[in-house]
Computed example of a mutant assay.
Amino acid sequence: MSDEVVRALRRGVAALVLAGLVLAPWAVDDYTAALLARTLALGLVGVSVALLTGVAGLPTLGQTAPYAAGAYASALVAGRLSDVGPVQVAVAAAAGAALAAVTVPLVVSARGVVVLMITLAVGELVVTAAGRWRSVTGGTDGLAGIAPVRPLWGMPVLATDRARYLYTLAVVAVLLGVVLLVLRTRVGLLLRAGRDDEARLRASGHRVSAQVAGVHIAGGAVAGSAGALLVVAQQYVSPADFGFDTSALLLLGVVIGGAASVAGALVGTVIVIAARDWLFGVLPGQAPLVLGLAFVVTVYLLPGGGRRPAVRGRLLPGVPARRRPADRPTPSEVRA
C-alpha cells in the first residue's frame, strides 16, 4: 500500500476510535468502563514511547519504569497527602521524571539497539524492586483500597466507573494536547532533526546530549502521569501491571499507530490493549501468540517495513525514511 493510503486509513481508524472513546461510558457497563480507563492510561504511556522512539529516535522497552514510579507515588499520595487529582498527577509526573533523570547517564551516550536493551533492563529492575520493597509498594501483593480521587479541590470524589473513565479521558486529552503543542515548536523540529541526522545536527553546534536527556526526562514525566491515571482507574497497583508483556504491547501499539505520531500511538495502543483483553476471552492462553503474529505482520505491511533507517541510524518500522540529498553540506561547510 502507498503512504497516502496508509495515512488515510490511519486517520479514519483514529477518528472512529476517538469517537468511540468519547461515547463509550454511555454504551458499556461499569466493568468495561473501568477496563477502558486503564487502557487509556496505557495509551498515555504509548504516547511517551512514541515521543522517544518515533520523534526522538530512541527506541525503548522501558517506559513501564517511570509508569510504575508514577503509579506508586500517586498511590502513596492518595493515602497520606491528598485525594485531589491534579496533585496526584503532578507528583506522579515528578516521580517518573526523576526516575528517568537517574537513568539519563545510561541512555544519553547510547543509540539504537543498545538503548533498547538498556531501557528493557531498567524496566525489569524497577519491577523487581517493586516486588521486593514491601514496606512501600506492598510487594507482589500490591497496594489495594486506594482512596478515590476528586477531580478538583472542593468537588466530590469520583465514585463510579463512568466518572473515573471520563476523568481519565479528560486528563489524557489535556496531556496529549500539551505534547502535540510542544512538538509543533522548535523543540519538535530539533528532536526530529536529531533522529534523522544526529551528526549533522551536532556539527551545526547544537547540544545533542542535552536534547536527548531532556526528551528522556519528558517521556518519563508523561509515563509517570499515566501511572496516576492507572491508580484512578483500578484503585489498586502491583508489579504485575508493569511487566515485559506490557512493554511489548506498548511498542506494538506505537508501531501500529505510526511511530512518528504521538496521537497515532495513543490510538494504536488503545486498539492493541483492547484486542488483547478481547482475545483473552475468545482464545484463552493464545492471546500472546496472536499479538506476536500481529507485530510481525505489521512490520512487513507498513510502508518500508523493516528496511528504512530512521532511529538515529538504526531500523524502526513505521518511521519516515531519512533523506540524504546528494548535495548535503559537509560538517565543515555547516560550521562555516
Score class of each variant (00 low, 15 high):
243 G>F: 02
39 T>W: 06
259 A>S: 14
167 Y>S: 07
243 G>N: 12
162 R>P: 02
168 T>K: 06
65 A>E: 00
141 D>A: 15
244 F>S: 04
94 A>I: 15
300 Y>M: 12
295 F>L: 15
87 V>Y: 07
228 A>T: 05
194 G>E: 09
210 A>W: 13
328 R>I: 13
223 A>G: 08
156 P>Q: 01
273 I>K: 10
213 A>Q: 04
272 V>L: 02
71 A>E: 06
164 R>N: 10
321 A>S: 05
182 V>F: 01
2 S>N: 09
209 S>H: 11
322 R>Y: 00
141 D>P: 00
112 G>I: 02
33 A>K: 03
87 V>Q: 03
208 V>Q: 06
22 V>N: 02
146 I>W: 02
219 G>Q: 09
86 P>C: 14
163 A>P: 00
305 G>T: 01
133 W>H: 04
315 L>A: 06
87 V>W: 09
70 G>W: 03
99 L>I: 13
238 S>D: 14
273 I>N: 07
253 G>W: 00
11 R>Q: 07
156 P>C: 03
295 F>E: 09
143 L>D: 02
260 A>L: 09
62 G>R: 04
255 V>A: 04
336 A>Q: 11
259 A>E: 07
190 L>M: 12
246 T>C: 11
72 Y>L: 12
260 A>Y: 08
66 P>M: 15
252 L>S: 06
215 V>L: 05
139 G>E: 00
177 G>Y: 12
334 V>G: 08
229 L>C: 04
253 G>M: 03
174 V>C: 11
230 L>C: 11
265 A>C: 10
48 S>W: 14
67 Y>C: 09
84 V>G: 10
317 P>N: 03
290 V>Y: 00
37 A>Y: 07
58 L>M: 15
139 G>N: 01
284 P>C: 05
202 R>Y: 13
62 G>F: 09
63 Q>L: 11
318 G>E: 04
25 P>G: 13
66 P>E: 14
68 A>Y: 03
90 A>E: 01
285 G>A: 04
100 A>G: 06
294 A>G: 08
80 R>W: 14
